[in-house]
Amino acid sequence: MTDRRIRVLVAKPGLDGHDRGAKTVASVLRDHGMEVIYTGLHKTPDMIAEIALQEDVDVVGLSILSGAHMALFPRVREELVKRDMGHVLLVGGGIIPEDDRTNLEQDGFAKLFGPGTNTDSIAEYIQAEMKTRWAAEGVDA
């Protein structure tokens, strides 16, 4: 009966320097009691998956506003799977057109959050998802 805290990696893939959203979300998730690791800028999919593994996170959240999401997001997922981390709750946000969002959500991404999203709702979503997953695994949260 451990009181397990949700561990989240907030990551910035690619060359995109827009980190306002990623850092704001990181702060809000921390306010909601999660343990949050922020990668900093300019990380490759390989680096992100490696940090996720080292930090043994439950959730990976990707933020991108450079338009390179269709090239980079699936690669992060591949790198995670390669490290046997395919089970993490994978979410993302940024400037992502509707069609791309649908495609990514069919391809291993649990949910993508667009502009105007209430940050508390992101936290609540993650908490609800992890509660369900942990209940299924018999973990008490």
């Binding site: 690619g14 060359l15 995109d16 338009g67 390179a68």
Partner: peptide, 20 residues
């Protein structure tokens, strides 16, 4: 972004970012 970061369009780091 590749140009802003001083990288050529054919740099490995720039996959998917060229012209975006």
């Amino acid at each position: 972004f590749p140009t802003l970061m001083g990288r050529d369009s054919d740099d490995e780091m720039c996959l998917g970012e060229v012209g975006q």
